[in-house]
Simulated assay, not measured.
Amino acid sequence: MLPSSLFWQRKDTAGSEHVLADTADGLYASGTALAVDPIPYTCRYELRTGPDWATGFFDVSAEGAGWSRGVRLELAAGRWRVTTAERGDLDKVLSSAGHAGAGLPGTEDPDLLYGAFDVDLGGSPLTNTLPIRRLGLHTAAGDEIGVAHRLSVAWVLLPSLEVVQADQIYTALGAGRVRFANETFSADLSIDEDGFVVDYPGLAARAGDPGPQRAG
């Protein structure tokens, strides 16, 4: 039984994400995400960080009509170990729906993820909290406001579960806002006092839950 519940409604497509979480010692989260684009799928995941909020374990699965995939990421001594599973033919399902084929789940070269301490699940507001908390951006003040932090993440694409290295930039703006950016995109996220996303413009907004509860 986990003490916190978070629920987001997608803005960009029909979908949602529900997460049960415990923040007593870093983050333990168990989540389910649903979406209809590019094809209907259900994603389930389990995520654990250390007390410093660096990701140590991420196990995620995705499934739809006629296919299922899984990938597990485990960080040890700065290097990622990647384990994958696949059933059915996602490429065939995507092609029949008029979409391009998907890459294989996981990555052929985990060393490309060296130096990444956060995972980013496609379409998930929950995983934005990982660098926000790890870098202390939710409590940034004074000279820390406006400082851009460039980082490398393990980006897990949905529904393929392909894992790619991605460069991202996080900047504390103060007043419960953090700017997320990459080479082609930027969004100012509204966050609560614990660093969890309340509103992600164009992607998702929190709804229907009281948010995380502080321990003690």
Rank of each mutant, 00 (worst) to 15 (best):
L2Q: 06
P3G: 03
P3Q: 01
S4G: 13
S5I: 12
F7Q: 09
F7K: 11
W8K: 05
Q9S: 10
Q9I: 03
R10W: 03
K11P: 04
D12M: 12
D12I: 03
T13F: 13
T13P: 10
E17N: 11
E17V: 06
A24R: 07
A24V: 11
L27F: 02
S30A: 12
S30F: 11
S30N: 14
G31V: 09
T32D: 07
A33K: 06
I39W: 07
I39Q: 06
I39E: 05
P40A: 05
P40W: 01
E46H: 08
E46R: 04
R48L: 15
T49M: 06
T49P: 12
F57A: 09
F58I: 00
F58M: 11
D59S: 12
V60Y: 07
V60G: 11
A62E: 05
A62D: 12
G64K: 04
V71F: 14
E74T: 15
E74Y: 06
A76P: 15
W80E: 11
T83R: 13
T83W: 11
T84G: 09
T84N: 09
T84K: 08
T84M: 07
G88H: 12
D89K: 05
L90F: 08
K92Q: 15
S96L: 10
A97V: 06
A100T: 01
P105M: 09
E108Q: 14
D109R: 08
L113G: 13
Y114W: 04
A116K: 11
A116P: 14
D120V: 01
D120R: 03
L121I: 15
L121W: 07
G122I: 00
P125M: 00
P125N: 02
L126H: 01
T127Q: 02
T127F: 04
N128Q: 10
P131H: 02
P131V: 00
I132F: 05
G136C: 05
L137D: 00
H138I: 03
H138Y: 08
A141M: 11
A141R: 04
G142T: 11
G146F: 07
A148R: 13
H149R: 09
R150Q: 13
R150N: 15
L151I: 15
L151R: 05
S152Y: 06
A154K: 00
W155C: 02
V156T: 04
V156Q: 03
V156G: 02
V156C: 08
L157I: 07
P159N: 00
E162K: 13
V163S: 09
A166H: 14
D167K: 06
A172C: 05
A172W: 01
L173P: 11
A175L: 07
R177N: 03
A181V: 02
N182M: 04
N182L: 02
F185Q: 10
S186H: 03
A187M: 06
I191W: 03
I191H: 00
D192T: 08
E193V: 11
E193L: 08
E193Q: 14
D194T: 07
D194V: 05
F196N: 04
F196K: 00
P201G: 09
P201E: 06
A205L: 09
D209S: 13
D209V: 10
D209T: 15
P210A: 01
R214V: 14
A215Y: 02
G216R: 02
